[in-house]
Amino acid sequence: MLIPITREKFEQLVPSIATGSQYAAVWGTVRDVLRRLLISFVGVIVLFVLDILFGGVAQGFKFILGIVFGFYWLWSPVYWASIKNASYRKWRYSGFWRGRVLDTFITEDIIDEAESFNRLGDLVIVENRERRINVEIGDKEGFRTIIKAPLQRIHKAIARGQPVECLVMSNDPDLESIREVSDVYIPSQDLWVGAYPCLRRDFFLAMREDLRDRYGKKSSRTTTSSPSSQKKRPSRRPSPSRRSSEESRKSDRDYAELRRRRQREDRRRERATSRKDEDY
């Protein structure tokens, strides 16, 4: 299922300024933090040397640069996350897409390479690999793509056939050629999968509920069925026809018992009468 959305809604879902979750995603590892700290330290040292060589020149400008370089390690994730958001916002058209999980598999991808020297002085390239979950998704129209994310324990809950929802982007007004896909949401597990959380997830969940109400689609996140779809429990009370048949059978049994009693009484009277005749 593919439902186009307006540009205004798309800009709400993919903000221009990084959100808290996007900031955390771009923060990186300890190595990344140390790298940013080194850049900040080198920048402050360079400004200090320039201040000694050219003291009294453009003090206000150097003060601003000092703040920029001194806090580079802190504000740079906001900048890089905003750059990522801009790479999504460049697409002119977008839509809400719903499909299913076709397959899942695990790979080891190279995320970084570093050059080093061994004991013999030879140049060695060290590859930093990361295990990632690959989720292949698609629909009946033939669209297929793979979403990658760092492998986590919660990914064990992903299985084939589960419904998935996401945002797709393109420069075609009819969204015939999909160029970009956001991180995906699996409603049955309440799970998000993706390398970067480009969506405002609270807005996305509100939008999917609105689309469900508008198009009459039952949300796959909820499992409560409607009263009409629930199976009716069989009533323990017998139906009127059953009660009438049981009552008729009971009356027949009572009538047969009464008839047998009368026959026994008649036989007793006959035996008593025959005994009196013998006595006479």
Rank of each mutant, 00 (worst) to 15 (best):
R132K: 12
P15R: 07
E11W: 12
G138D: 06
S225A: 11
S239Y: 15
L191S: 04
A25L: 02
G121N: 05
G60N: 12
P4N: 03
K140W: 13
K232D: 08
P173I: 00
E141Y: 15
I5T: 04
V124Q: 09
E270Q: 11
A58Q: 10
S170I: 02
L34V: 07
P15M: 04
C198N: 08
T19L: 11
I111L: 05
L123G: 06
R89K: 08
E115M: 10
E113G: 04
A114L: 12
E265W: 13
S220A: 04
Y23G: 05
I111G: 03
R249K: 10
Y185T: 01
L167C: 01
I110P: 14
R261S: 08
K90Q: 08
R201S: 03
Q12W: 15
W73L: 05
Q22N: 03
A24I: 09
P15G: 02
D109A: 05
L13H: 04
P173H: 01
S188D: 02
I3N: 01
R201C: 03
D32G: 04
N118W: 09
S226E: 10
S76F: 09
D266C: 12
M207P: 01
A157E: 02
S16D: 15
V46N: 05
S16W: 15
D190G: 07
R271I: 01
K148W: 09
S21E: 05
K276N: 10
I133F: 02
R131E: 09
E130W: 07
S228M: 14
A157S: 00
I158K: 01
R260H: 11
R214P: 11
E265L: 15
S87Y: 14
G66S: 07
A206F: 05
D112C: 12
Y93R: 01
L37A: 11
K148S: 12
F61L: 09
G99Q: 10
D210C: 03
F143A: 08
R221V: 06
W73E: 02
L13Y: 00
D210E: 10
P227K: 08
R236D: 13
L37S: 11
